[in-house]
Design a binder for these strands. Sequence first.
DNA 1: GACTAACCGAGACGGTACGTCCCGTCTTAAG
DNA 2: CTTAAGACGGGACGTACCGTCTCGGTTAGTC
Lengths: 200, 200, 200, 200
Amino acid sequence: MVEKKEREAEGRGGPPGRPRSAATHAAILAAVAALLAEGGYPAASIEAVAARAAVGKQTIYRWWPGRPELVLEYLIGVAATLPSPDTGQLATDLRIYLGATCHGWTAGGTGPVVAALMAHAQVDARFASRFYQELIAGRRTALRTLLSRGQARGELAADRNLDLLLDMIYGPLWYRLLLGHAPLDEGFIEQLLTELGLAP
Amino acid sequence: MVEKKEREAEGRGGPPGRPRSAATHAAILAAVAALLAEGGYPAASIEAVAARAAVGKQTIYRWWPGRPELVLEYLIGVAATLPSPDTGQLATDLRIYLGATCHGWTAGGTGPVVAALMAHAQVDARFASRFYQELIAGRRTALRTLLSRGQARGELAADRNLDLLLDMIYGPLWYRLLLGHAPLDEGFIEQLLTELGLAP
Amino acid sequence: MVEKKEREAEGRGGPPGRPRSAATHAAILAAVAALLAEGGYPAASIEAVAARAAVGKQTIYRWWPGRPELVLEYLIGVAATLPSPDTGQLATDLRIYLGATCHGWTAGGTGPVVAALMAHAQVDARFASRFYQELIAGRRTALRTLLSRGQARGELAADRNLDLLLDMIYGPLWYRLLLGHAPLDEGFIEQLLTELGLAP
Amino acid sequence: MVEKKEREAEGRGGPPGRPRSAATHAAILAAVAALLAEGGYPAASIEAVAARAAVGKQTIYRWWPGRPELVLEYLIGVAATLPSPDTGQLATDLRIYLGATCHGWTAGGTGPVVAALMAHAQVDARFASRFYQELIAGRRTALRTLLSRGQARGELAADRNLDLLLDMIYGPLWYRLLLGHAPLDEGFIEQLLTELGLAP
DNA sequence: GACTAACCGAGACGGTACGTCCCGTCTTAAG
DNA sequence: CTTAAGACGGGACGTACCGTCTCGGTTAGTC
């Protein structure tokens, strides 16, 4: 989001006119976070965000195309707080990383939000691309890093297809997250890893 | 006299009032199908459905609480057309069933629709229950039947956790459906089955 | 309302089919009265009347064209209870009759109802005719009777235009009823009669 | 600095936000006028007004509580076009003023509209107050001015109760307007004035 | 006693309008 | 040239009634 030119590189003088307010940007994201926590995706209407952040609607539309992208930026911020463990043991790394992921979805309340964005992505191809590139791809890369480190250590056979493995790990997690038909806890992660031959 | 008593005993005499019109019910679902095909979930507004079906909005609200439940009924109808193969060989059954499932999602266009409903289920617990009971549970049962038939035949170890297997099959399929980062085709199904030890 | 042929005149036997239920007719009018008392004309919707009277809507539409006519019948019933004084003195007769009229409008609560019907009459010529013939004309005749008896007695000049007088008595009363800018009480009636030379 | 202070002192600087659009306001009232002319009060639904004026419904509800107030504003505009004669002779002034009033009601078509508002005022006390203050009171004041000028000139006895006179003039006019049982023309005005001793 | 005919309750039906929410755009004055 | 404020055209929501229709089930007179 927010890819305005960095004009400071031009020399000394900044751009003409009033510069963008960093405080405003923060206030908007804070309002998004609060509204999502209170009433989920439907509660975070642009109108409500603007009112909560004491900001004009236009200010939001100037920097984000719409609600989905705004919420996406919030989720990216949340995802950045996930750990990148490197204990030297694949199974442990996975337990830490996937445990934190599931915890964020369930206890952190981001699960329903991410589902709403995913639904929107089904309808809006432009957003789908952004959604994948800016949120999903990062998480997949993080998990892939753990796996390939394990592979390098010989904990994982060299011929295992990592992309397939990513789908087979994230897939069931998302599936349970979205349907909620069974708990999304350490026990499930353990079963998953065992079934995939990732836990000793 | 005797006849009258018998008539009552038979349970004749429906509820009072004009009975529900089957034609109207069908027209509404047909309109839903048409609008979903044309513009996806966002296009299937109650207002548009009513207009397309030449029906009063109240008639829709009389029988469905809202758009999600209306679309759910459409999806249930679609899901009822999926095959229930019984070839005597587990891998073949799975290839047929899962192939048809993915084909419906992608070529049939129900993928984005189901995603929208799932997103709504995250926000509306009442609907989430309906969604699972009336649509998901049936699909899981169908797949479970295939697996347990294979288990009975000895194609699958007796100690395999079938519920876990369901999550590990449906999960990656949904994951690819929703993210669209990789094809959802026979090749993927084959990889999946192989990884899970379900294809020879 | 309800001008079905009097077939009894034909002989003994009534018309074929189930005869109209007097109890139902009474229940409908009672429901109208109750709803008007509770929430005025807007509350007396056909739907509400039917529900209150435990009657099918069709039963109402069978006997009345719509809400205005239904309410009109109620008002005719109320108007029938107004007195027809004949004390031998014009001024006294007028005080009694007009006092009762105003009392019914204000304390009896029929004022707003009659105003609603009048407004409807502006838009529906067919109803306007009914309204005048079945409600207003009767009241005018009643008042005219009082005046012409006074004229016969010599209390009123023989060349006074009685129709004009009717307009000049009823007009100001209605005017105050509808606008409510000043009380509609005995004092006003007295002023009115004095100004018109009808009270000594 | 000084200039700025002065600007504020002058009362410059309107309220924040986009100012109300005069064109939109005019378009709405024009649509009201057109719809009233075509189909009377029932035709002037908020929905129809919005469509005719090419305006969002919310824009109407932002400035008017509902249909009655919107129509009231239209009527106020119409009433403002009535003459305020001052010929030096009471009877002439009255003939001009009351003639124009009746002409507007009948030929101008505002009669049924004003009746509808009056009916609504019976049910909605808040509106009743507005209706009287913003429309009726002005007309009564105009007529009162004519009468008190005549009184000053000695054409009318000093002890005549002008408020009573207002009711006795407007009352019969409204009465005939609403019931339509007799013409509302110059002849009637003449009779009225004669009976009240206002025409020589 | 069956048949016919009109009644009655209940309530579904197509439809109009309501008043509200939110969208994304626009137009001000202030900084 | 951004910002807060908020009006604007517009689309959809879910509700209330309208007047019509279609059921099952009376309730009378006629054959």
